[in-house]
Each structure stands twice: as structure tokens, then as C-alpha cells.
Amino acid sequence: MELSYREALNQALAEEMERDGRVFLMGEEVARYNGAYKVSQGLLDRFGSARVVDAPISEAGFAGLGIGAAMTGLRPVIEMMTWNFAILALDQIMNNAAKIRHMSGGQLRCPIVIRGPSGAGGRLSSQHSQALEAQYAHVPGLKVVAAATPADAKGLLKSAIRDENPVMMFEAELLYGAKGEVPEGEHLVPIGKADIKRPGSQVTVLTWGRMLTACVLPAAEALAKEGIDVEVVDLRSLRPLDEETILASVNKTNRAVIVEEAWPFASVGASLVDLIQSKAFDALDAPVTRVNGLDINMAYAANLERATSPSVERIVEAVHHVLYR
């Protein structure tokens, strides 16, 4: 069935809350207002105010509450209005959620899902437009997923809620309205499995999140018209990474381009380069090339915002580069 990305997330939440009475949703504006991006539409009416909860405005507060609840047996889903604001909960996430199982020698657990939109949202400037997934992917104990399509959004969120570990789910403001086919019935996407969104033979393009539909697939189509056959690998899971799928693709095409909305320094893409050079060095016919957001803070002006993000043109150029064209 065709669903929007937000409807797919909404279905995932509703199905998991139906299945498991321990699951609850908390965040700013999630209940009465149905979510800042309407992801929780109708959930308050369906599940009541005990399980769909408007929290006072403190990211550290609802993240911390979720951690305490997870330690003592519940399965919290914490919505961050955006990942930019989750910075206010970083101590709770990095020092606590990520470490509780480990620090307690496995006695305590923290099965919490923290989710919300990431990346540019359309003229929202620097404090609303960051793609910060690398900060979380850096931390042992956390899992990090990023859904690019409605089907993956639903399947990943359901898997995240069932996971025994803290899972950070990166959505995108500009994707919530995007439509796509979502399988009928129970649909789970395993965490740690990439998905080849477009098979190809000449160049591997690795990406995740909004970049897939915003510019990677359009670039692949443009390149196809030139006779260049690009394979697009949607990582979906950033920690753990699906190394097998990534390396199989690079070993097949011998060329890799990484497209990432985030800044280039110390990013997930930087780690992918390390992975490929250390484990597929002999397969490479060209240096791994990266297309990132510019290494600056995001502007409000529309033309400047567009110029900051990866684009079809920059991806096409990068693919030409690894093909020495």
C-alpha cells in the first residue's frame, strides 16, 4: 500500500504499542498536538494519555525519564522535535543510555528508542539543519539507523522498538510527506542490513537518509542516460554497519562514492573510507571520493541552503571522477 513516510512511522508506533503494553511515546507536542510533524497523529486518542505523553520542554528530561523507565522494564519511544535539540540530552544518551548495560555488567538494560528528524528542513538555518548521526554512531552501546523510504521507516522503527539496545533513529523533515510502497502486514527491517536501492555494475554510491531520494537516485538516473551504471547502496543502519553488503558492492564495481548530508570531518563517510581502504584496497580502481554538505553552518537564504547540501551535479561529477572521465 502507498503511505507517506509519516504515516509509515505512525503505523509502526501504533502496531508496536498495540503489540506490547510496555511501549510508550513521549516528547514535546506528541500527544494533544499529534506531533510537531504529525507522526503521532491519532495515537493519543487510541492509546490514552498514560502512554502518549506530552512532556515539559526538556530533552534531558524526557530522555532521562525514558532511561529510568527502560532500566525498570518499559520500552520508551522518545521523540525529539529535531536531532538538533537532542544535543541538550547528549549526556543522558552518551553517558547513560549507551553505558548502563556495560557499567552494570549486563545487569541492567536500556531498550530505548530516540527518534526525530535530522538534516536540512527547508530554510530553517543552522540550528535546525544539522545532520549529527556521526556523533551517535561514534559511541559504543548505541545503534543508529536512518530511513530513506516509508517502507524502511516503518520496518526500522518496529525493529528499533523491539531491540534490546538504545537505538537512535534519524528521520528527515523533508521526507515526512514523501510517499512510497509499504508492504502489507507485519513489516520488519533488520537493523544492520543495508539495501541495494539500485543495482549497478560500474560505480558504488553509498548513502543513507534523505540523500537517497533527494539527489543520489536522480543522479544515478542522469548517469544512466550517459551509459554509466551506478549501484546505489542505502546503508539504513550506520551502527552496526552492513560491511558485507558494502564490500561486496565495492568488490564488484571497484569504485566508490559516498554521499552524505553531514559535514565531511570525522563523519560516518570518513569511517566508510577507512573501511573500504582497509578491507577492499586491492579492489579499488580509483580513490574513494566523497560528496558531503559543505563544511560550514547552514544559511537561511534558499540559494545558499541549496548550495550547501550535496546535489545531483556534485554526485555526477564525483562519479565521473572515479571513472577518470
Partner: peptide, 29 residues
Amino acid sequence: RAVNQVSWGSCIGSQLPHAMGAAWAAKLQ
């Protein structure tokens, strides 16, 4: 875990939302 006591997080104060959250969870259940 056997005596329901968790490990202290060394960042001062960060344990307090956990206490509140665990209590909130008990109430919910």
C-alpha cells in the same frame, strides 16, 4: 540489580531524571 540499586553516573545530577523516570514507569504500570 538484585537489590534494585543502579550504578551512579559520575556526571553530577544525571541520575535524578532516571529516578524520576523509574518512578514514572512504576506508576504507569
